[in-house]
Design a protein around this nucleic acid. Structure first.
Lengths: 127, 127
DNA sequence: TCATATCGTGATATACGTTATCAATAAGGA
DNA sequence: TCCTTATTGATAACGTATATCACGATATGA
């Protein structure tokens, strides 16, 4: 392991876990800055990338919005509210063999998939 | 209809249809500029948005890359090559009732879904 | 414990895709 | 034809993310 354990890296990991679900890099930065005003946003981005590569956290790329970072690394699906933009977990079994339903792969080597549901969250429905 | 038929709007629509699949705004702009050097990139973006709203074309938001515009507006799934970033159509039946498999919707009003497969395209596999 | 190599940091510039602004232009109805 | 106003082109601004680089911190070996 040529990675060092820095205070900042620990702070980022703790922040992702504290925010629990789908926080953006900025939200994570804002949380840390409250107690550690000297941290740089670049450091937050760097460590989010590093922790994602190491498998400590999982990056969820959201179409039409900032990437989100999930303390929960297991495969599961998400729903995005088209009104407020927030991302929610979806309570549905992961379809591990989904790629096998593809009729003609044209030689493409599939490694995984994501499903993103769209809709309106309960809060936004009331507005 | 309070929309006017402008030359530029027609050019954008024709370009999307000419490029057939999944062109980015920039690729569309580059094609039009060849013959119409005075068109502005802002106009291309504006008309891509307008045509998408009108249902003439379909915007495909790609995680981690520029939006792509599809002349084919029917629902279907896509695969993104993690090496070159290109987006391909996937030959698989659309699962219209997928949202019904969700066990607990928590009051979320689902309107649709997208599936994005990940993998490596044949060309990139040879490198 | 200390020295040292180098990894990580903070500050900032830059990249990229997209939207906002605004004066000038042009589409389409009267 | 004129008039209203949607649309344009040019450019600034925006949001997200990465690149750069001098300085500081960390882990390892002596």
């Amino acid at each position: 392991m040529n990675k060092r354990n820095t205070v900042q890296r620990t702070l980022v990991l703790e922040a992702v876990r504290a925010l629990k679900c789908h926080a953006t890099a900025d939200e994570i930065y804002q949380l840390i800055v409250q107690r550690h005003p000297d941290i740089s946003k670049a450091t937050v981005y760097r460590n989010l990338n590093l922790l994602s590569e190491q498998g400590e956290i999982k990056r969820r790329e959201v179409p039409g919005g900032a990437d989100r970072y999930d303390h929960q690394v297991s495969d599961h699906y998400h729903a995005r509210c088209t009104a407020c933009g927030r991302v929610f977990d979806v309570n549905m079994a992961y379809i591990a063999d989904l790629a096998q339903r593809i009729q003609d792969t044209h030689g493409f080597a599939f490694t995984g998939h994501d499903i993103m549901f769209k809709g309106v969250c309960p809060e936004c429905q009331q507005k």
